[in-house]
Design a protein around this nucleic acid. Sequence first.
DNA 1: CGGAAGATAGACAGCGCTGTCAAAAACATC
DNA 2: GATGTTTTTGACAGCGCTGTCTATCTTCCG
Lengths: 348, 348
Amino acid sequence: MANAPKRAVTIQDVALAAQVSTKTVSRVINNEAGVNAETRARVAQIVKELDYRPNLNAQSLAGDRSFLIGLFIENPGSYVTDFQTGVIERCREAGYHLMVEPWAPGDPELSTKVLNLLRQLRLDGVILLPPHCDDPPILDALEKEGVPIIRIAPINNRADSPVIRAHDYVASRLMTAHLLNLGHRNIGFIKGAPGHSATANRLQAFIDEMTQQGVSVNHDLIFPGDFTFDRAEISAREMLSLPDRPTAIFASNDEMALAVLAVAERMGIRVPEDLSVTGFDDTPVSRMVWPQITTVRQPVKEIGWTAADLLISLSPRRKGWPDPMPNKLLDFEIIVRESTGPVRGERN
Amino acid sequence: MANAPKRAVTIQDVALAAQVSTKTVSRVINNEAGVNAETRARVAQIVKELDYRPNLNAQSLAGDRSFLIGLFIENPGSYVTDFQTGVIERCREAGYHLMVEPWAPGDPELSTKVLNLLRQLRLDGVILLPPHCDDPPILDALEKEGVPIIRIAPINNRADSPVIRAHDYVASRLMTAHLLNLGHRNIGFIKGAPGHSATANRLQAFIDEMTQQGVSVNHDLIFPGDFTFDRAEISAREMLSLPDRPTAIFASNDEMALAVLAVAERMGIRVPEDLSVTGFDDTPVSRMVWPQITTVRQPVKEIGWTAADLLISLSPRRKGWPDPMPNKLLDFEIIVRESTGPVRGERN
DNA sequence: CGGAAGATAGACAGCGCTGTCAAAAACATC
DNA sequence: GATGTTTTTGACAGCGCTGTCTATCTTCCG
């Protein structure tokens, strides 16, 4: 029904009531220096009494900042949800808002569309998740508009923006060591999607750890994947049909570990007795299935916090990033659950 | 680094280049009537050449509409992700944007916070998911600001806004019938969270179908739940420890069905041989686990589309909703998978 | 061919706020 | 008490756009 289009309380109203200029009110609500303590108190009082809230559009237009932060994602779901939660939490505390924008990586008009968004909204910053954090059309558009960015777990280096990542590589090595400790030697690996640094890191760490522990890597046991259930299902089926099938499978994320579980179940292979399975990310489902999945907890929400904090701390002063670029490397945690167990010698 | 603060192309620039007034340019970009076809073409041409995009903030400020739609959620995840995707898709096509705002239902300052947001952002509309669609502080704040709303599957009626829902009740009856057809008579039920219409509807439909088919409902087999895994796990454990335990359990959503599966597995109860389990919502995981869960597919994304479409179609003209309120009732689909099977007589 | 009606265009103000700069007030100094 | 310095405040323009209203130009009709 959209009733009563009541005119909202404006800065004018406050100024009038407080007997000061609008500029002074502006100073108070923005916590700027140079206002007498008494005046400040009086204005603050009136603001409260009148229940005044500045109009963001007007602030944006006049002040050339939007109080909006973009989050570019490929598709929602998986870890993105947690991440988003983290970002929103911090944004809200700081009076910012989050605009979630999904993009399809291959889109030929991507650049135009991104530019369109940026020009229209004047975002104060953008957080780029993989694979967008390495996507030239997107990066170019952002650079062209001079929008500050934060990249999460990118592949390529750039000197112009901070990077936040968790230590995938170390985590993956530890996870591999976990499998090796359990006696597994014949270990299969399902890769993630190309274009994600996690894909390369997790695989490389797997190979390095195996090698360092003197276990030769069987490259025929490294199967393709793309972080989805369906693709992993195919790889799992192939791998488990091998005459000398692996005693353990390291899946590059939880959803793919789920696929391995499903295939194993269907083939009558018991987990963890006959096959150990590990995931990555500690998504909620990893503990809702049976057996619960051994996985790596990435501090996804914390990464979200960090990203938001960085952008918010930057935005008021348009001075660019501080000199040592404030990159962050966050901790992870290996979570051993039911899907991994000691290798059983009776086969072969 | 936030380089080159290049001044963006404005409507002025276009007007100058096209030798018309800014107002005419405005007419063209907003597709308003009253512009000569020739002029329109010329302006459109220049707009393209200059790669001009109107500044949303300015449009909002001057035009009293924000091109922003709010989506109020309790917490992300579950079906919300799909819903969000649907809304974003339509918003983008129409030049709108989505602002996702999670709220904690019990928050004593809820009203203030919502008002704050509304006054600051001037949203063109808000979509309310359960349980917010029945939350007085939120509804009051929205009404006070005259923001149009769409409510998804609310409990209470209100004449002032459209409602979109899928036919929970019918779906739940059919699902119950499915269980009855398989020969189950001793059926357990795990309820959803209070404050959601789905909770009441799904339960009532279950009771009604049972009753109609002449099967007496054992109220001791109706267990509490809140749509979460953890709570359902407790209920499932209790239920399956009963001396005369049910041969089927109807869980009010997929996550809780997962819990039943996990408990059954742990207790050595086979699904579906010894126990049939059904979920609700057809979330992605319902087919990623083994056995895959029999569930009800709700057209969550389509509901998102519909909600966005309604709001967008309303917003340009501030005339309020059309007369028969455009409520929508969407279709569902029962998806029979592996977690349900015929009852086996050998027990007792 | 005069005048009414309709189509097209522009002038202008102003949405609500902040940046800039100058004025006023308060305080220091010798 | 005159002068310099700092603090506090306000006037004013303008961010980029749209709503309103008026001016101009066409067209149509008796």
